[in-house]
Design a binder for these strands. Structure first.
Lengths: 226, 226
DNA sequence: GTTCATGCTGTAAACATTTACAGTATCCGA
DNA sequence: TCGGATACTGTAAATGTTTACAGCATGAAC
């Protein structure tokens, strides 16, 4: 479960998502501060740091380098159009032409033992996807085996879109490698101990003792042939 | 028709598209120049101006404010379905891995009352997808509202890929229109009577008396922001 | 043979943007 | 009562980035 946000932090997160959705790029610190009614760019900076610490965004050392990370199902703050609470809209917003670009992602079927997950022989296919579809931009697709994540809507045979990452925050759904098997589970670290939680009462949580490699975070699901 | 590009300009355009696809944001002038082997940021600036003059990109007065423009219009064989080849209709670029042959599908948010489902005002966005991803090729995407199909892994906020069709077979998941509301349910016809079945014990089956319009069959699901 | 688009170098001003530092104040839980 | 999170002001350095100016060279078009 992601850490809860203060109302103000929620405003900022929505502001960022709105800017990206409507203008195509994230706001600057001064823009955020102005929209909040604050005058110091630092007001925004502090909020951004808090949002990053809580796992909601990623800050890149760039102009407008803010990336909104995926939300846990059911507590998503900003899908589509939402009324913004008392926040002054960003000036100069306009709807923009379609950003036509395509990402080609490798589809990983079965992970080859002793090989990196993106090893040549694991790549089953390559699929074109809209880079805007998932945030952040995934690095590969993985075919899910088994129903251990059934209750969050990830079923046997589904493709999950994965961003490569060696670490994760509590509550994020990760692709992990245990004994050369790729598995999709919810990540949980408590008291320095890592557990991988299924989303299906028929499966038991996995207590990790040592040999865990996190391959990435799940940022989306695709199901074909329904 | 778009003006032709010089080979060098094509390089720059690909460079920009690649940066956006792989990193999520456009390059700066110095970055472009460096990638070209040039040393002056002005080398890039000139190319950008040329690309904008020819209608391939839009330059925004911002850091990294480059937007690659899509093709203006294409005649579509099916209403709503548009096949494009990357950003620009240039054969050389088409072969670049960044630019795959893609399907552009309209994303329907909320269905407008009294309007066909693909009415202009219902289209919230347009997404690029691999034409091979779903079979048969879908005609549009619909944002699902509610959890009535939870147990087959279709959740609130998911996108379903839909093939237009006025009919369906028993057990197929359809998009139906009842009282100007689009709903996703499992189709069942028994003794000439049509029922729409939810996949969630909290919801009741709908017995259809007459006013049913089937808009299409669900052939896939996409979930973002997990 | 002049004009135009291409394709650069090189420099620097102007501006945008991030980031650090030094404060202030409130609220909340241990 | 302490520490920590929240929520700011205010200033300024450092850096990132765009944009203007002043050139030079080439080849194609007219």
């Amino acid at each position: 479960m992601n850490e809860p946000l203060s109302p103000r932090q929620k405003d900022v997160l929505e502001l960022i998502a709105k800017s990206i959705a409507e203008r195509g790029y994230p706001p600057t610190r001064p823009e955020i501060s102005a929209a909040l009614g604050a005058t110091s760019p630092n007001a925004a900076e502090q909020h951004l740091r808090a949002l990053e610490r809580k796992g909601y965004i990623e800050i890149l050392p760039l102009a407008r380098g803010i990336r909104v990370l995926g939300q846990k199902r059911g507590q998503s703050e900003f899908p589509g159009r939402k009324v913004f609470s008392g926040v002054v809209p960003i000036p100069e917003i306009r709807s923009d032409p379609v950003f036509a670009r395509v990402l080609r992602l490798p589809l990983i079927g079965r992970v080859a033992a002793g090989q990196p997950i993106l090893a040549e022989q694991s790549i089953e296919d390559e699929l074109a996807l809209d880079p805007q579809l998932f945030t952040p931009t995934p690095d590969f697709l993985l075919r899910v085996r088994g129903d251990s994540m059934r209750d969050v809507g990830i079923h046997d045979g589904d493709f999950v879109a994965v961003v490569r990452s060696r670490d994760a925050l509590n509550g994020q759904i990760v692709v992990a490698r245990i004994d050369d098997e790729a598995t999709v589970k919810t990540f949980e670290r408590k008291d320095g101990r890592i557990r991988l939680l299924p989303a299906n009462p028929d499966y038991a949580p996995i207590d990790v003792d040592g040999d865990l490699v996190i391959e990435g975070r799940v940022v989306g699901v695709i199901r074909r042939s329904l």
